[in-house]
Design a protein around this nucleic acid. Structure first.
Length: 256
DNA sequence: ATGGTGGCGCGGCCA
């Protein structure tokens, strides 16, 4: 079994113990983190190694930052989308056995029509080009991370209120659909799920307690690999802890 | 109601 998970931790420094506890309890083969907000010299490498994991990381001060924990060694690490000159650390790609794992922190976009929104759409275009190449070159591909896009209305607690807003707007959803058209499968939807299953809840207005959330953390698997997916679920437990991240882990298991 | 909460880092941005 190959178990892989994604989690936007919103500061690895603050969530350090949550992450180590979760690793010990769940023992994934791969864990992809986003928003580590940790500069590389400060990365808690030793504690993660002691937990039995190797780790690739690309961080920056204050914002963004991604890290991929693996039980087995990772090869062919990339930290940028080809053709996109971007100082923001949002990409960590590596190969684990014959699966290429692309850990992504897709830009939030701030507001539809803003400069950050344009940056998000441009970023997704560069991603699309790169995924074309990956799909051709690699045996198996997994894209996972904080996509900052809720794929469908059932992934939104209040679709009417969110209509045409950031994380939900048609151009964003179209960009995600274009990725899926390349044969990438949102594996969470291969299985029966509770209605109103979300992976992120705003800290404000008791978002979690009222289940006012969105499903924006996704695991997309290439066609052949998706057929080997045996389970996918959202683990809400870490969101119940004290001082939680606003996101919770999303998991997928494969018969590999 | 254009708020609310949390992280970073110490004023204001970002989510």
């Amino acid at each position: 079994m190959f178990k892989i998970a994604t989690w936007n931790v919103n500061s690895l420094k603050v969530r350090h113990n949550h992450v180590l506890d979760w690793l010990e309890a769940e023992k994934p083969d791969v864990l992809a983190l986003q928003e580590t907000k940790t500069q590389d010299p400060n990365f808690p490498l030793e504690a993660i190694n002691d937990a039995g994991y190797q780790v690739c990381f690309a961080g920056q001060k204050t914002f963004n930052g991604v890290a991929t924990f693996t039980k087995k060694p990772a090869a062919d690490v990339i930290t940028d989308l080809p053709g996109l000159d971007d100082p923001q650390r949002r990409v960590m790609g590596c190969r684990v056995d014959d699966v290429f794992v692309l850990n992504l922190y897709v830009p939030n976009g701030s507001e539809v029509g803003s400069e950050k929104y344009a940056y998000k759409l441009g970023w997704l275009e560069a991603l699309q080009k790169y995924v074309n190449k990956l799909i051709t070159d690699e045996k198996h591909v997994i894209l996972l991370g904080d996509f900052n896009i809720a794929p469908e209305d059932r992934d939104v607690h209040d679709p009417e209120k969110w209509q045409d807003k950031i994380l939900v707007s048609e151009p964003e959803r179209k960009a995600l659909l274009d990725l899926q058209d390349k044969g990438l499968v949102d594996v969470f939807r291969l299985f029966e799920q509770e209605e109103k299953s979300f992976s992120w809840w705003d800290y404000r207005m008791m978002g979690f307690r009222r289940n006012h959330g969105l499903r924006i953390d996704l695991i997309l698997a290439s066609q052949e690999l998706s057929k080997l997916c045996s389970a996918s679920y959202i683990d809400k437990e870490p969101r119940r802890l004290e001082k939680p991240s606003d996101h919770t882990p999303v998991v997928a298991e494969f018969d590999l």
